[in-house]
Design a binder for these strands. Structure first.
Length: 493
RNA sequence: GGCGGCAUAGCCAAGUGGUAAGGCGAGGGUCUGCAAAACCCUUAUUCCCCGGUUCGAAUCCGGGUGCCGCCUCCA
């Protein structure tokens, strides 16, 4: 039984889809005018995990995430660069996809662009005009907020309070300062579409109503996005959608909290953004994921590079487990013996994992259960190495950690992916061999000197009974954690 | 000004009435030629402050302090 905090009711509610086992969810994506930052990453990862978990629970999830590709900022950037707006939006759609793929965020089932659904928007606006909840002024069309009785129900605001809070210049042509644009008459040089009200372009909010209804129907299960979208974007979506259809729009509204930098909201206007592009270059993407899932999705998250380093070190606890399992699996010949309490312990931890996820997707708690599973398995592994425990339960247990972790998008790769570039790898291998020789001669002085050299290259050494391993011959830590003049730092993506 | 949220160990962070998860760090131990890595153990009598309710409060109520968000484009 999954409980979800619904912004609309301000309560956790038991989640049941509108139709059988199928879940239809829509998440507001990004406006594609620049590279993504950590805040976008958090939102994408949060909804990626929600989607994965719903799928794990047996739901058929239809997941739609849009791209806003008509927007003032896109137009501004296009004119700065002297290219059509579509060039800018296409570029940043590709960049977004590249960043999110790097973070292990799965593509949505549909990723529509606003510009592909102008006709549906026009149709929706016509319905609103026909119902007298929207009106024309010159070439613009506005939604008349006072005609929709439920206005403010999502954000918990009253019209009077909103009016009192207005701080921007009011367009005198509007019937009410809170009325918002459904359609804007075009200005010279802007992208333009023909409409019954003359040439123009859609307002921001109408696209999500049109696209969500197009892909998911007039009523669907979940609508999500960052908490800053609650007002006005989602409030307006509800107003225009429900006014047009006369039916409830989305059942559940899920909003993720912000990423803070030094206890301040990360935003472009504050100039304190960290881009995903730099981050995935400097850090293990799974460590980024783990650190972003380390706080509950609705709470603000304190971001720093240091947090990612910590997450990376936490990840090692799992990776050593996977390595141990790989070695055991290839060795075969399970030893006889009792599994002790391992099976029961893992079963109860698995239950804790799902109970945590069931409770409004409490990933920090679910991750804690995962760490406890790792501890139990490591302890078991120690006994196993002494030969008095069977391998079967261990391998099954590790596999289970892997399965649960993948719900969070973790453990997709069980060891370091990209190693250092070829010529450095060669040097490392040469040094490791030389050091092995020295150790065989019990020439500790030379061996230690070679180890120091290896460390300067960012390579760790691990002495085993079978000789030195420098795991995968890959750096044990991301470049940014190593000393400043480590050569890998110069590598360009 | 209006509305909302948060305050838990050195740091990050769960926990919303039954006696403080988890991670990082730190200290000790095992292993090792010495290390590293890994593993094991320890690490908050106490949850911003003051009152109250209760057999029992980090959790509920009242008051205070501090921080943050939304009301404007924003994940």
């Amino acid at each position: 039984m999954i409980k979800i905090y619904n912004t609309l009711t301000r309560r956790k509610e038991v989640f049941t889809p509108l139709a059988g086992d199928s879940v239809r969810m829509y998440v507001c994506g990004v406006t594609v005018y620049d590279l993504s930052h950590v805040g976008h990453a958090r939102s994408a990862i949060v909804f990626d995990v929600i989607r994965r978990y719903l799928a794990l629970c047996g739901y058929q999830v239809r997941f739609v995430k849009n791209f806003t590709d008509v927007d003032d900022r896109i137009i501004r950037r296009a004119s700065e660069e002297g290219v059509p707006a579509a060039v800018i939006s296409e570029r940043f759609i590709e960049e977004y996809r590249r960043d999110m793929a790097a973070l292990g965020v799965a593509a949505a089932d549909a990723e529509p662009k606003a510009t592909e659904h102008i006709a549906a928007m026009i149709e929706l606006i016509e319905r609103l005009i026909a119902k007298h909840v929207a009106y024309r002024v010159d070439g613009d069309v506005y939604f008349e907020v006072r005609r929709f009785p439920g206005y403010g129900k999502l954000s918990g605001k009253k019209l009077e309070e909103l009016l009192a809070g207005i701080r921007v210049e009011v367009d005198e042509r509007k019937r009410d300062p809170l009325d918002f644009a459904l359609w804007k008459a075009s200005k010279p040089g802007e992208p333009v579409w023909e409409s019954p009200w003359g040439p123009g372009r859609p307002g921001w909010h109408i696209e999500c109503s049109a696209m969500s209804m197009h892909y998911l129907g007039e009523s669907f299960d979940i609508h999500g996005g960052g908490e800053d979208l609650i007002f006005p974007h989602h409030e307006n979506e509800i107003a225009q959608s429900e006014a047009a259809t006369g039916r409830p729009f989305s059942r559940f509204w899920i909003h993720n909290g912000f990423v803070n930098l030094g206890s301040e909201k990360m935003s472009k206007s504050l100039g304190n953004v960290r881009r995903v592009r730099e981050l995935v270059h400097d850090h293990d993407p799974e460590a980024i994921r783990l650190s972003l899932l380390g706080a509950h999705y609705r709470h603000p998250l304190e971001f720093s590079e240091e947090r990612i380093g910590e997450a990376r070190r936490g990840l090692d606890r799992f990776r050593t487990l996977f390595d141990a399992a790989d070695r055991l699996a290839s060795r075969g010949a399970p030893a006889p013996g009792s599994a002790g309490g391992l099976v029961d312990e893992l079963a109860s931890l698995r239950e804790r994992f799902t109970a945590s996820m069931d409770d409004d997707f409490n990933t920090p708690q679910a991750i804690a259960a995962l760490f406890d599973m790792a501890s139990a398995l490591h302890a078991y592994h120690a006994a196993l190495e002494k030969g008095d425990r069977p391998t079967g339960p261990f391998l099954i247990g590790v596999d289970e950690v892997l399965t649960l972790g993948r719900v969070l998008g973790l453990f997709e790769k069980t060891s370091e992916a990209a190693g250092p570039p070829g010529e450095i790898l060669e040097r490392i291998e040469k040094l490791v061999r030389a050091r092995d020789d020295a150790r065989a001669r019990r020439d500790w002085r030379t061996a230690d000197a070679l180890r120091a050299e290896l460390q300067a290259l960012g390579a760790t050494t691990e002495d085993t009974p079978h000789g030195t391993r420098s795991p995968g011959m890959a750096p044990a830590r991301p470049a940014s954690e190593r000393c400043v003049d480590s050569p890998e730092r110069r590598v360009v993506p």
